[in-house]
């Protein structure tokens, strides 16, 4: 399992709405935000490739999201 800290940046003022839609996802845990255009989240996926795919999907499908930046990537062998 790959566990990553990510910073998600959005269009101005959109962060709370993006947070609401991401909150439903089982592998995303929101840990903070600036209330406007930045979100901090912990993402767990089965592999680095899946993590990449998730980030790509997010960028492709959600107009409000401008960037997904990894701040930490750890590997849990369990």
């Amino acid at each position: 399992m790959v566990i990553a800290g990510v910073l998600i940046t959005t269009k101005p003022g959109q962060a709370p709405f993006v947070a609401a839609s991401l909150g439903a996802s089982p592998h995303v845990q929101l840990v903070g935000g600036d209330g406007s255009e930045r979100l901090a989240a912990v993402v767990s996926r089965e592999s680095g490739e899946a993590l990449e795919a998730w980030a790509e999907e997010l960028l492709r499908d959600d107009e409000r999201i401008l960037g997904v930046y990894p701040t930490f990537v750890g590997h849990d062998p369990e």
Partner: peptide, 20 residues
């Protein structure tokens, strides 16, 4: 080392604001 490799693999793709 493993962490580092993981980071290097993932970093360039998710850094992208454009659809990679």
């Amino acid at each position: 080392a493993r962490l580092l490799v993981g980071l290097l693999v993932v970093l360039p793709l998710v850094l992208a604001a454009a659809p990679p």
